[in-house]
Simulated scan of single mutants.
Amino acid sequence: MSESSLSLAATELPELYDYLLKMILIGDSGVGKSCLLYHFLNDRSVEFASTLMRLPSSLPPSSTMSGVPASSSKTLKVQCWDSAGQERFRSVTRNYYRGACGAVVVYDITSRRSFESLQSWLSDARALASPDLEVVIVGNKVDQEDERQVPYLEASRWAQEHGALFVETSSKTGENVEQPFILLARAVLLAIESGKLDPDKTGSGVSYGERALRRVSSWNGSLSGSGGKGKLFGKCC
């Protein structure tokens, strides 16, 4: 799947989406979390924002999911949460983690201490959000290559060993700043379509959007008009 097939759609798509999901940004203070979010949201500086993303579905169009025919792409409404400096005092609350299905965990490639803190951040996230949390590890500040303290291969291997994706970025130059969010959204969508994440399950961090509900309703209606067999999930339509 080429990256060109992925698209951000904060201003292009209607307010209809298939899934709503929550992403959190965590990591030591000063590693560049807020700047990453700033660039991703098209130069908007906020502690919380949502944007729409359209991603290709991993399911063939002819397949079904929960009895609903799959489409070739899905629209996700992504809620992005920034810890807004709470991490300076190690006061990131349980509520911040609750309901998250994905985490962008950031360290500074020029600070080994911030890299060594990843284990603590990841453990907290999986304990307080979900053990099935999808994670992208981000090594920020690649524009300061001369001051690098954490080799790329070491960090990449660490991420792989901890079941996370990995990418390096520069929130100063804008290099790769969209990639962590695209990778994370794609991982969450794959988890939904493979059955690992259930939007019907409380606390999964994912819920159905209006478009998905309308699709169920539309398909439901077409069944009701075909021979009177209007049954879905064993319940009356």
Score class of each variant (00 low, 15 high):
L6P: 00
L6T: 13
S7Q: 15
A10T: 12
E12T: 15
E12R: 14
Y17R: 02
L21N: 08
K22M: 04
I26N: 07
D28L: 03
D28Y: 02
V31D: 01
K33Y: 00
K33G: 00
S34G: 07
Y38V: 04
F40E: 00
D43Y: 12
D43S: 12
R44H: 11
V46P: 00
E47W: 06
E47C: 07
F48D: 02
T51R: 10
L52A: 01
R54G: 00
P56G: 00
P56W: 00
S57Q: 06
L59S: 01
P61Q: 11
S71A: 14
S73C: 06
K74R: 15
K77D: 09
K77E: 14
K77L: 15
V78W: 08
A84R: 07
A84P: 03
E87A: 07
E87Q: 11
E87G: 05
F89V: 08
N95V: 11
Y96T: 04
Y97M: 09
R98Y: 12
R98K: 15
G99P: 02
C101G: 03
V104P: 01
V106A: 05
Y107S: 00
F115V: 04
E116S: 10
S117H: 13
L118M: 07
S120D: 13
S120H: 13
L122E: 13
R126D: 02
R126L: 01
D132C: 03
L133K: 06
L133C: 05
I137P: 05
I137S: 04
G139C: 02
V142L: 13
D143G: 05
D143P: 05
Q144M: 15
Q144W: 04
D146Q: 12
E147T: 10
E147K: 15
R148Y: 10
Q149L: 13
Y152F: 15
L153S: 13
A155C: 08
R157P: 00
W158A: 06
H162D: 06
V167W: 04
V167E: 02
S171F: 05
L184P: 09
L190V: 09
A191P: 00
A191D: 07
I192T: 04
I192A: 02
E193W: 03
K196C: 07
L197K: 11
L197I: 15
D198W: 06
G203Q: 04
Y208C: 05
R211E: 13
R214I: 10
S218H: 12
N220S: 15
G221T: 11
S222V: 09
G225Q: 13
G230P: 01
L232A: 07
L232S: 05
L232W: 14
F233A: 11
K235D: 02
